[in-house]
């Protein structure tokens, strides 16, 4: 035991708690299994340890020890690769795939969560050493709160208005309101689709959103999340029963055609609304200098 033992233990515990808090298994069901969780908790523990020992290293003027953090950065970049590979591998066997953009988003957040753990452990240990345990607890709560805040992006319902529209056919063409979805030739398939399908139209609230929801990855993420939460009426070898999203080129609205097993309009609206807006899909054309140039 020396003067740094307690602060380090405190920092490590704190960092690990932060990782546990950020490791939620929700409707996305990922990571679901005990093994997946164990990997992330262990890595979180290592991250916390790195963050915690960085402080005494600096205090003891051992600046070279801090270069260890760069090793950590490499290590956690591997976490991103690992997640990406696993998810891409299993994506081919999903009834409705996640899509590359969604996978990339998940992989990035797994990496960044480890950095937040390092940050939290660092703050905890630093405050403990400089002041005392009470300040450390306060600082810990603040950094946990910041982590929580940084980890939550916006949802689809923040950027669009969601409306239900029944599906209808014009000849062989399937439509959601006036948005063409696809051509279904067989009358029996058409009946199935009318019976089991639901249509929704998302109207963007502003110009930036048009590009964001037009992103193919974002659209696939919506379909995936809806199919996960409400079930999906399809099987391999029934490509006619594929949930699809098409865009109205005139005004950028998107028409969603889904085949859920639970057909409740309000629930479906809520679920579409809760789909995360993918970081990689966000575009801000309104921030462009060309638009904001003073005339």
């Amino acid at each position: 035991m020396n003067e740094y033992t307690m602060p380090i233990i405190f920092g490590v515990t704190l960092g690990t708690i932060a990782r546990i808090m950020m490791l939620r298994t929700d409707y996305r069901q990922y990571p679901t299994y005990l093994h997946g969780k164990t990997i992330h908790l262990s890595l979180g523990f290592i991250a916390a340890l790195l963050g915690a020992v960085a402080v005494p290293a600096i205090m003891e003027m051992e600046f070279t020890a801090v270069t260890l953090l760069t090793v950590a950065a490499t290590q956690f970049r591997d976490v991103r690769n690992m997640e990406r590979n696993t998810l891409t591998e299993i994506d081919g066997f999903e009834l409705v795939p996640r899509g590359k953009t969604y996978i990339e988003g998940i992989a990035i957040s797994f990496e960044s969560r480890n950095y937040l753990v390092i940050f939290t452990a660092f703050i905890g240990t630093l405050f403990y050493i400089i002041w005392n345990v009470y300040f450390a607890i306060a600082g810990a709560l603040v950094s946990l709160f910041i982590s929580k805040f940084l980890m939550s992006g916006s949802n689809i319902k923040d950027i669009v208005d969601i409306e239900y529209h029944p599906l209808h056919f014009e000849g062989a063409g399937l439509y959601v309101e006036n948005i063409y979805i696809m051509n279904i030739g067989l009358p029996e398939r058409q009946e199935e689709i009318i019976k089991y399908g639901m249509g929704f139209v998302l109207t963007p609230k502003n110009m930036n959103v048009i590009t964001t929801i037009g992103n193919l990855g974002q659209r696939q993420a919506i379909l995936h999340d809806v199919s996960i939460s409400l079930g999906v009426f399809r099987d391999s070898g029934t490509p006619a029963l594929t949930p699809l999203i098409k865009r109205d080129l005139d005004d950028g609205r998107i028409g969603i055609f889904i085949l859920p097993q639970v057909r409740e309009i309000d629930k479906a609206k809520e679920i579409i609304g809760a789909v995360p807006v993918l970081e990689n899909a966000i575009r801000m054309p309104s921030e462009s200098k060309k638009h904001n140039k003073e005339e």
């Binding site: 062989a172 279904i184 030739g185 067989l186 490509p239 006619a240 594929t242």
Partner: peptide, 28 residues
């Protein structure tokens, strides 16, 4: 329609109607 339905199932494609008289099976 019955031939189209069978072919759709066999080929894992989609039967699209180009009109009343012509259906095509397309693999997507």
């Amino acid at each position: 329609e019955s031939v189209a339905a069978n072919l759709e199932a066999i080929t894992d494609g989609i039967a699209h109607a180009l009109g009343d008289e012509i259906f095509i099976i397309v693999k997507h």
